[in-house]
């Protein structure tokens, strides 16, 4: 299959979702798809009740991928996620019971409520894509995507993710309230959880994997755009309000996400617009501000930085 076909499959998924199920969530859906296409993970920071879980569920439902959910609490143990070995009395040996992490799409709800030990186990699994339990290594399924959420306003009894772990999420974004007319429609129509359960997939796991390969290999990244990405990264490193600028991993992630964005636009090359359009969700959460500038909105700061960098146009 060539690029246009892959692109059609993926855009069908997005169109179906936003037309029939998730109104007013186009941007989050697009970012989730970018994460899925690049093998990255997404962290959604927003208030409860805005459809975080629904989005993850719908994405799993329409792609036919398996879905697992972990509700994080302070007494959640690593084994609650990874699974554990249970003695099978009838067969007389220990059998491994895989935890919810052994799914294609895993929703980690309120990840900042889990204690650091559990968080780090989860994040290690996210990075390594395998879990070692009692000496046996179990590979996680492919594709594998973590859909983590955290509630920024309710801070009591939470363990905020350290910067180094935030860096493992390809994308960090909010959802926001839907526009007025859409929200009225949602209120009138009621929840859609039930309908999501009866969703028919429009794509298969193989389609997703093929599209991901296509993003990796078929999207051309020009040196001009690389220069632009570098200029952006360098600008964050020399900015007065930022303590630690973007890492090389961040730059790699940005390039990868830009490829996926270009793919979603149906192009086989990355334009600076793609980088510009995806830079804030990919990079803002990785900036470490100076102690006295903690309250500054990192997204706004990054947008201002980007506005000052000239796009390569000729």
């Amino acid at each position: 299959m060539a690029l246009p076909d892959h692109n059609r499959t993926i855009t069908t998924i997005l169109d179906t979702l936003s037309r029939d199920y998730l109104h007013g969530k186009e941007e989050v859906l697009r970012l989730s798809m970018v994460a899925l296409l690049t093998g990255g993970h997404i962290l959604i920071e927003d208030l409860p009740g805005l459809g975080k879980t629904t989005i993850a569920l719908a994405l799993a439902g329409i792609t036919g991928l398996s879905f697992g959910r972990v509700q994080c609490t302070s007494d959640l143990l690593p084994s609650d996620i990874t699974g554990l070995s249970v003695f099978n009395r009838e067969e007389g040996h220990f059998a491994f019971l895989p935890g919810p992490i052994f799914n294609n799409i895993v929703l980690l709800d309120e990840i900042n409520r889990a204690m650091p030990r559990t968080q780090s186990a989860m994040l290690e699994a996210m990075e390594e894509r395998r879990v070692t339990v009692e000496g046996t290594t179990h590979h996680l399924p492919d594709p594998f995507m973590v859909f983590a959420t955290q509630n920024p306003s309710d801070q009591s009894g939470t363990f905020p993710l350290p910067e180094s772990q935030l860096d493992r999420f390809l994308i960090c974004t909010g959802i926001g309230y839907p526009p007025e007319h859409l929200e009225k429609g949602i209120i009138a129509g009621g929840g859609i959880r039930e309908r999501i359960g009866g969703m028919t997939p429009v794509a298969s796991t193989a389609d997703i994997l093929a599209a991901r390969r296509c993003v990796e290999t078929d999207i051309y990244l020009s040196d001009k755009v690389v220069d632009y990405i570098y200029a952006l990264v360098a600008a964050t490193r020399s900015h007065g309000m930022i303590q630690t600028g973007l890492s090389t991993r961040a730059a790699i992630s940005l390039a990868l996400a830009a490829r996926a964005a270009a793919f979603l636009e149906g192009r086989d090359y990355v334009a600076p617009d793609d980088v510009k359009g995806i830079a804030v969700p990919v990079c803002a959460h990785r900036l470490v501000m100076r102690p006295d500038q903690e309250t500054v909105d990192r997204g706004e700061l990054l947008r201002a930085l980007i506005a000052d960098i000239a796009l390569p146009l000729a």
Binding site: R267, A271, G277, A310, L311, L313
Partner: peptide, 24 residues
């Protein structure tokens, strides 16, 4: 604003198919 705006961004702003064609 040529320096701070991409071609596709401009095209999107105009909403004009021919501008989009040029940009592409």
């Amino acid at each position: 604003q040529p320096g701070s705006q991409g071609l596709f961004e401009t095209a999107g702003q105009t909403g004009n198919a021919r501008v989009r064609e040029f940009a592409a």
